[in-house]
């Protein structure tokens, strides 16, 4: 089994400039020993998935606080299906519970809303991305 740390892409999509959450998560994952690639703002779903594949990432975390989550999350899911289906895709932001449930059905592995403890997010990423790493090697 490879010893290299998990590699995670933290992404911001669309026109949403709220990057506080994305940066805090990026820091927390890095402090937990992972390699984090932060895409910066205003990325398209294609760019995000392309970055993840180029960087050989184990997971993608997408943060949206502008209300465009029902459009942008499914587009990333579609891109992932077309490219490399097993990258763990999760996200967060101002997302009402109903929408979070719908997104999980559509293939987003987890949605974290404001107030979610960092420890819970770190655990999730370690567990799910770690499992993927064992399978993929």
């Amino acid at each position: 089994m490879s010893k290299r740390p998990l590699r995670i892409v933290i992404a911001k999509a669309g026109l949403d400039g709220h990057d506080r959450g994305a940066k805090v998560i990026a820091r927390a994952l890095r402090d937990a020993g992972m390699e984090v690639i932060y895409t910066g703002l205003f990325q398209s779903p294609e760019q995000i998935v392309r970055t993840a594949i180029q960087e050989d990432a184990d997971g993608i975390g997408l943060s949206i606080l502008s209300g465009a989550h029902m459009t942008l999350f499914p587009l990333v899911v579609d891109q992932l299906k077309a490219q490399d289906g097993d990258i763990v895709f999760f996200g967060g932001g101002t997302i009402p519970p109903e929408d979070a449930a719908a997104l999980k059905k559509a293939g987003v592995r987890a949605i974290f809303t404001p107030g979610a403890p960092l420890a819970e997010i770190v655990d999730f990423v370690e567990r799910e991305c770690g499992r993927r790493r064992e399978l993929v090697g």
Partner: peptide
Amino acid sequence: MPTLMGYDSDAPQALGEVGKC
């Protein structure tokens, strides 16, 4: 968001953001 960033509502960048916040 599209208005704040200088895009019209039918611009590709506006997809999913029109009238949201």
